[in-house]
């Protein structure tokens, strides 16, 4: 019984939260890694693209709610998602035309594009705050739980309850669908293959008649879509706050780099690795330990390895350790 309780506690406080957080990081990192692969730079504006897109989703959600449109047991934000993606994709494409394209034509050094993306980051940051403010916003509605802790306790007779929030379930499900669709697109469609070809060898892609502007545009649209989905899922799971999204940049970059920049598979692996280590290191293991260990060995304190405030430190430490042993990341990225 104690063992079962321990497993339930572990699922409840580590596995489920880490999986949904990992899915959110993976989606974010996929966007970063795609831009890196095709446009050859790390997009510092990605966190703010997520923030902007989520803000748009929130606005549309509010509009739906105000006219009484709901999505049954699911969050209304899901209905708003396509609109948010469309608006964000339009903004990102406009940014590309107005800003990035010039440097592409100049064959500018990628590091210049990184600095350019800093400027875009400032602007997007300002625009998002301008539109929706800096406060914390919760916008999840619909059913709260797939599995409720009390009902679970009653049904199983265990002391430990299992709570599986619908936003977490939704996050994991959406992430699986999105990732599957992305991989199908990249590996099976003509456009997807042309993107991989362009990422592999730009000149040869040009000589094969692949239109670079089209590749770049499709990449931006996909990256915007991934950013808005990741941002909305994160916001549903936790809450929306513009500055938090900016700060997600570090774990997202860390995920993409740990996995191997430019490798979509790596971005997913990196996202989950970072999420599980962050949650694992900052979870207070006392509960699990008391169930599993004999009383004499039970810990006195919280058995928390690090305070949650140090979760960035964990992502960073994992990053350094992986790079020390595998300089190009887990899945051989485009480095070196």
């Amino acid at each position: 019984m104690d063992f079962l309780n321990a497993i339930v506690a572990l699922l409840n406080f580590v596995v489920i939260p880490a999986t949904s957080y990992g899915a959110q990081l993976a989606l974010g990192a996929l966007g970063v890694t795609l831009i890196y692969g095709i446009l050859r730079f790390s997009n510092f504006a990605h966190g703010d693209t997520m923030a902007f897109g989520t803000a748009m989703v929130i606005l549309v959600t509010w509009a739906f709610q105000s006219v009484g449109i709901h999505f049954g047991p699911l969050p209304t934000a899901l209905l708003a998602l396509p609109f948010g993606i469309a608006i964000t994709a339009a903004l990102v494409l406009a940014t590309d035309k107005a800003v990035y394209r010039f440097y592409r034509r100049q064959k500018a050094a990628p590091v210049i594009l990184v600095i350019v993306s800093m400027g875009v980051m400032f602007i997007m940051n300002g625009v998002t705050r301008f539109i929706i403010g800096v406060g914390e916003i919760r916008f999840d509605d619909g059913g709260r739980f797939i599995v409720n802790a009390n009902e679970f306790k009653k049904a199983t007779g265990l002391a430990e309850g299992l709570a599986f929030r619908s936003t977490q379930g939704l996050t994991i499900l959406t992430a699986i669908i999105v990732v599957a669709a992305l991989f199908w697109f990249l590996n099976k469609t003509r456009t997807g293959k042309s993107m991989r070809a362009y990422s592999d060898n730009e000149d040869l892609a040009l000589l094969s008649g692949i239109n670079p502007e089209r590749v770049v545009a499709v990449t931006w649209i996909i990256a915007a879509g991934l950013a808005v989905i990741a941002g909305t899922l994160y916001g549903l799971d936790k809450s929306f706050k513009a500055f938090n999204y900016f700060q997600l940049l570090l774990p997202i970059f860390a995920s993409a780099i740990v996995g191997g920049l430019g490798s979509p598979l790596g971005a997913i692996a990196g996202g989950f690795l970072i999420a599980f280590t962050e949650v694992g290191f900052t979870y207070a293991w006392k509960k699990v330990a008391t169930y599993v260990l004999p009383d004499a060995l039970a810990p006195d304190g919280l058995a928390q390895l690090l305070s949650t405030d140090y979760k960035f430190a964990v992502s960073f430490a994992i990053l350094v350790i992986v790079l020390l042993f595998k300089p190009t990341g887990l899945f051989k990225g485009k480095a070196v």
Binding site: F122, I123, M124, G126
Partner: peptide, 12 residues
Amino acid sequence: HMRLLTMGLVLL
């Protein structure tokens, strides 16, 4: 929030 926007614009 105009200041963030302006800084980005100046940089670009």
